[in-house]
Amino acid sequence: MSVYDFTAETLEGAPAPLADYRGQVLLIVNTASKCGFTPQYEGLETLWRDYRDKGFAVLGFPCNQFGAQEPGDAAEIANFCSLTYDVSFPMMKKIDVNGPAAHPLYAWLKKQKKGILGTEGIKWNFTKFLIGRDGEVKGRFAPTDTPESLKSAIEAAL
């Protein structure tokens, strides 16, 4: 299996097969609008704008599992991202990343790259997974790892 075997859904409700990103480097991030890490949207947008012409994409997956910090519906999330951070990278439908209702993509990501001390669970909003051009998980980064701190890993994958 690879990341390309999964399909997500955009905030607008359209299917988003990850196979459409085949051959690109991806940064997959679980996001939230009311989190202390929410300002990372700005850095994620900068990465997207700086590297998208080189075959890079950021994919945001809103999640309300951590402190209920993403309470809005799809329209509210899209409005917040656009007006507050000028987000133009693809944003997906709100999902669960942990538990029995976890999106299959996240179940797979967590098995591919475990967290600290071998744990699988996502600990908080803005956990990041770097996917290589081959569709394999190259790295897992904590919420405290800023988008700017990932530049060298992204450049190496490109």
Score class of each variant (00 low, 15 high):
76 E>K: 13
77 I>C: 09
75 A>G: 06
78 A>S: 11
112 Q>K: 14
91 M>H: 07
100 P>W: 13
80 F>R: 01
80 F>A: 03
90 P>L: 09
81 C>D: 06
84 T>F: 10
77 I>E: 04
113 K>W: 05
114 K>Q: 15
75 A>F: 04
85 Y>W: 11
115 G>T: 01
82 S>G: 12
88 S>P: 02
113 K>C: 07
78 A>T: 14
100 P>V: 13
111 K>V: 07
82 S>A: 12
104 P>S: 01
106 Y>D: 01
95 I>F: 10
113 K>Y: 04
102 A>W: 05
97 V>R: 00
103 H>L: 00
113 K>A: 12
76 E>M: 09
113 K>H: 08
92 M>C: 10
109 L>D: 06
115 G>Y: 04
96 D>G: 05
78 A>K: 14
112 Q>F: 11
76 E>S: 11
111 K>G: 07
86 D>P: 08
109 L>E: 08
93 K>M: 13
83 L>N: 13
82 S>P: 00
104 P>V: 00
111 K>F: 00
98 N>L: 03
101 A>G: 14
75 A>D: 11
92 M>S: 09
99 G>D: 08
93 K>F: 04
82 S>D: 10
81 C>K: 07
89 F>D: 01
113 K>D: 09
101 A>Y: 10
78 A>P: 10
107 A>Q: 13
98 N>W: 03
115 G>A: 03
77 I>G: 06
